[in-house]
Design a protein around this nucleic acid. Sequence first.
DNA 1: TCTGGGGTCCTAGGACCC
DNA 2: TCTGGGGTCCTAGGACCC
Length: 429
Amino acid sequence: VPTFALVDGNSFYCACERAFDPRLKGVPIVVLSNNDGCVVSRSSEAKALGIKPGEPWHHVTQRLGRHAAEWRSSNYALYGDMSRRMFEVLAGFSPDVEPYSIDEMFLGLDGLPGDHLDRGRAIRATVLSVAKIPTCVGIGPTKTIAKLANKAAKADQAFAGVCDLSAPAARAVLYRVWPIGEVWGIGPASTAKLKALGVRTVADFIDAPPAQMREALTVVGGRIHAELRGVSCLALTTLAPQRKGMAVTRTFARPIAAWSDMSEAVAAHAFRVGEKLRQHGLVAGALTVFMHTNLHAPGPHYANQLTVPIEATRNGLALVTIALRSARRIWREGYRMNKSGVMVMDLSRSDEQRDLLPSGDPVRSARLMAAVDSLAARYGGQVLRPAAAGVNHAGLPVRERLSPRYTTDLNDIVRARGAAVTAEAIRNI
DNA sequence: TCTGGGGTCCTAGGACCC
DNA sequence: TCTGGGGTCCTAGGACCC
C-alpha cells in the first residue's frame, strides 16, 4: 500500500505577504485578484470576520468599513518564488515530490523509515522555519484520502496541523460526518446528483454500489469511489506532463470602446504568451483571440473568438501580428469591451520544430527573442515591449497595493538597518 | 417488422480544480 | 463605479473513413 502526504500552505498568498512584513502578523489580511477585484486569499482573522472566498472587495468594504482588514494586490512573482522554496524544503524529505498547485505538493512516503505522523510534523516545522510558510499535512494511502486528511487537519485544531488517515478505522470516523461535497473532485453538480440518490456523507458514498456511482459520475466518480476505499488510482507524477495550452487573459480596469485600446491590449497579451512559450521551451501551432463585453452589466452584449492555425512559432512579434489580425476581424464598434485574451494550443517541444518568424530568418528570430528574454530577466518583464502594445493605459490592470518583489528583484530586497543587503550577502545566506 | 460494423478525429460544452 | 486568471479531463455528437 503506498502512502501519500499532501502539504498545503495555510492562506498561502497571505502567508507570503506576512513572511516579509511583520506588521501583517496576527491581523486580518486579504489578497485580492487582478484589478483588486475580489478576495482570493484570507488569513484566519479575515475568515473570522466573515469575509467570503471570491467576494468582491467593494462588498467587503461596504459591509465592514475600509479599514476592517489589511489588503494587498496579488504579487505572483513573490508567490511563485515562495512556492519554489517550499518545494526545495520538501525535496529534502522525499525523492518524490509532485507540485500540484502553487501552494500544494504531494509527497511519496513509500519506503521511508519511521512513523508517518512524526515525519508529517517534521515537514511542517521545517517548511515553516525555512520557507516561512505555515502548512497543514494530510497523510493517506491514496491522493484523495491525503487531500481529505489535509482538510481535516485544517478544520480541527486538535490535529495540530497533521492528520494521518492511513488506518481504515480513522477514516471511518471521519467519513460518517463529512459531506461528500468536501471530497476532491466532487463539485456542486455532482453533490446535487448524489443528494438525489440519497448520498450525503462520504460514508454514504463508499457504501453505495460502485457501478451506480460510476454511472452517476462517470469514470471520474468511479475513480474517486475506489480512492476513498483505499485503492490508489492516481499515481504520483513527479515529471510535469506536456502542456496542452496556454493563455493570457485580462479583465480591463475600465471597459474599452476604441480599437486603438483593444489592439494595444491584444498585442501585450500575445507578446506575453510568447514569453511563456519560450519559458516552457514550446512552440504553438494554433492561436485564439477572444473579446467580450461585461456579461453581468446591462447594455448591448457582444462576445466572439477566432482560432487560426499558425506556423509553429514562439516568436513574440509573429504572435502579435497574428493576434492583431484575428482581433481586428472580430472587433465591433459600439460596444464596451470588458475582457480580452490570447490563447495558444497545439503545443510541441521547440527542438522538434524550427523556431520560425514567418517569412523571416529563424536564426535572427531566435536571437531577437533571446535578447528580449534576457532584458526581461535583468530589468523586469515590461522593459521591452512591442510598439503595438503601446503604453496600454486603458488595458493596464489596477494593482493599488502591490507588495515588493522581495525575493525576485534586487531592487526590492528587504533593507536591514537602513542599508540594502547586497546580492553577495544574499548568496552567502 | 427487419436499414452493417467498426474505427478516428475534432469540437463544444460541462465539470472541476487552485 | 466596482465581480480574476489559468488550467485539466471527460462526454456526446458530427464528419469522415473503409
